[in-house]
Design a binder for these strands. Structure first.
Length: 513
RNA sequence: GCGGAAGUAGCUCAAUUGGUAGAGCUCCAGCCUUCCAAGCUGGAGGUUGCGGGUUCGAGACCCGUCUUCCGCUCCA
């Protein structure tokens, strides 16, 4: 590929728009930042990816079932999950170094520094005196008392400021403490801004009755709050899983890189409930199983790798990402997390309901542990699109743009052309269309030269093109042309259905798993 | 959010120091009848991202705003 990487990514974005895959949201009104719409081809591709995931998870596993929980949930759900706190950081920028910090972290670090000073005083004194009484020293030594008062004052001010949501005061604390930026060493700070990563809206028709509810930032909680419903009504035995696909919303500070990080995105998650003590086994199982699923798409083994997390989220015991080589580098595609019993325990606490499982073999109840697989549908879409997009230089010197999508996922499976627009060829082509259209997405095109029509289908990733010629009227055969190799073979019209069935259906992918 | 670059037809790009917005491809109708985008004729498509200002006159200059791309953090 002679194209520069940054141009290559730009070309993919242009191509997506030009061929009806992805449009920017509200484009005629100048667009909306980090929100995108799927066009006529994008919607088909996305639907096919979702369906492949769903079948691989739900249909092929007899112990996994799927649900579709609402986007709106009771506000307490997000208190229990930790999102209200964890997604709520006061941020401040240093104007000189252009670095961004969490205001609370800056203050906490400052307090820690003062505590260090106290510690040093204590250590010095401990060396000087025999029979050293530390508590006595701390309460009487003038310097230490002064330090301690300072710490108390800062902490009190900070706590009050946070409770009152007084961001100006948070900034004032930073200024009063003479906190400097570690990089620039300056005190040239911006205002403190609160970034709530959850979108909120109001429920209720009358404003007094209205209560704030959130648009879910992840689909997982819809599974956890329904865990008992599904387990009981489905007579599920541990280990079992609950799968779900759906929209989630995050008010990202920096949302960028096309559809990689959007404010509204779609997740495909599966929470697997296991007996405590077996979680490591299932964690390893799903790590392997999910990579296998990705590899079945045939986009190249070298484009995937695991990335084990060293720093873990508050709920996690172990976590790893499956990363994909996007045009802008290896980035997270799917996360596999060992979430322990954190979520169900939290919901037990906040709801007051028992969310346990009675294990007949063990003859006791316990809160199951959870292993989660969570993949971003839009990221998956982008990974497939960017691996499929190719600008080829042909032997005759021409270039060809082709989307080598996995045939089972392609929006249009087959295009049917009459070689010329007369002599009864269109009629025969139409006949083939009406025969195939019940089982496959088909396209019909009679405009321009056949070569041009091939290229148009290449550009949207149609895996096969069927051409009806004069000979077809005599021998009932047509040529079928392969998108990737551009090779043609002659095949009887009656054999078309079986030919396509073997090559373009989800079944062909599912069989590999 | 901060800094840098950019925004002209569906796409890629022009437009002399400020003087009537163009080309190629695409698209549509027709001719031709050809198995890999290249023939012929005609046609559609733009309040130059949006709003204001300077000017006799702005695509160009100034201010604001929106959006995209590249860096700085988190995540699916």
């Amino acid at each position: 590929m002679s194209v520069k990487p940054e141009d290559f990514f730009k070309n993919i974005i242009s191509h997506s728009k030009e061929y009806g895959y992805i449009f920017q949201s509200s484009e005629i009104y100048d667009g909306l930042s980090a929100v995108y719409d799927y066009g006529q081809n994008g919607a088909e591709l996305k639907k096919n990816i979702r369906e492949y995931w769903w079948k691989a998870m739900v249909q092929l596993h007899d112990n996994i079932v799927g649900i579709d929980a609402a986007i709106f949930m009771h506000p307490t759900v997000w208190k229990a999950s930790g999102h209200v706190d964890a997604f709520n950081d006061p941020l401040i920028d240093n104007k000189d170094s252009k670095k961004r910090y969490r205001a609370d972290v800056l203050i906490e670090e400052h307090v820690a520094k003062i505590e260090d000073k106290i510690k040093k005083e204590v250590e010095k004194a401990a060396k000087r005196f025999e029979n050293f009484d530390e508590a006595m020293f701390r309460s009487t030594n003038a310097r230490v008392v002064e330090y301690q008062n300072k710490i108390n004052e800062i902490n009190n001010r900070f706590k009050t400021a946070l409770n009152e949501n007084n961001l100006a005061e948070v900034r004032q604390i930073i200024i009063d403490c003479e906190i400097v930026c570690p990089i620039s060493g300056s005190r040239n700070w911006t205002d403190v801004r609160q970034f709530n990563l959850m979108f909120s809206t109001a429920m209720g028709s009358v404003s007094e009755e209205a209560s704030t509810i959130y648009l879910r930032p992840e689909t997982a909680q819809g599974i956890f709050v329904n865990y008992l419903n599904v387990q009981k009504t489905g007579r599920m035995k541990i280990p079992f899983g609950i799968a779900q696909t759906g929209k989630a919303f995050r008010n990202e500070i920096v949302a960028r890189q096309f559809i990689f990080r959007m404010r509204e995105f779609e997740q495909m998650e599966m929470q697997f409930f296991v007996k405590p003590g077996t979680e490591n086994h299932w964690y390893d199982y799903w790590k392997e199983n999910r990579l296998k699923w990705h590899l079945s798409l045939g986009l190249g083994k070298e484009n995937y790798k695991y990335h084990d997390h060293l720093k873990l989220a508050h709920y996690a015991k172990a976590a790893c990402d499956i990363e994909f080589q996007f045009p802008f580098g290896f980035k997270e595609l799917e996360g596999i997390h060992s979430r322990s019993d954190f979520d169900l325990k939290q919901h037990e606490e906040h709801s007051g309901k028992k969310l346990q499982y009675f294990d007949v073999e063990e003859n006791k109840s316990y809160v199951p542990y959870v292993v989660e697989t969570s993949v971003g549908l839009d990221r998956l879409f982008l990974s497939i699109l960017s691996a499929a997009y190719k600008e080829e230089l042909l032997e005759n010197g021409e270039t060809r743009v082709v989307l080598s999508l996995p045939p089972a996922l392609a929006p249009t499976k087959v295009a049917i052309f009459p070689l010329v627009k007369k002599d009864g060829l269109p009629e025969l082509a139409e006949k083939i269309v009406s025969k195939l259209k019940f089982d496959f997405n088909v396209a019909y095109d009679e405009k321009d030269t056949v070569g041009k029509r091939y290229r148009r289908q290449d550009a949207i990733g149609t895996p096969y093109c069927i051409t009806v010629d004069h000979q077809s009227l005599e021998d009932n055969c047509v040529t079928i042309r392969n998108r990737d190799t551009m090779q043609q073979e002659r095949i009887n019209i009656d054999a078309l259905h079986a030919y396509l069935e073997d090559r373009v259906t989800l079944k062909s992918l599912l069989k590999q798993l």
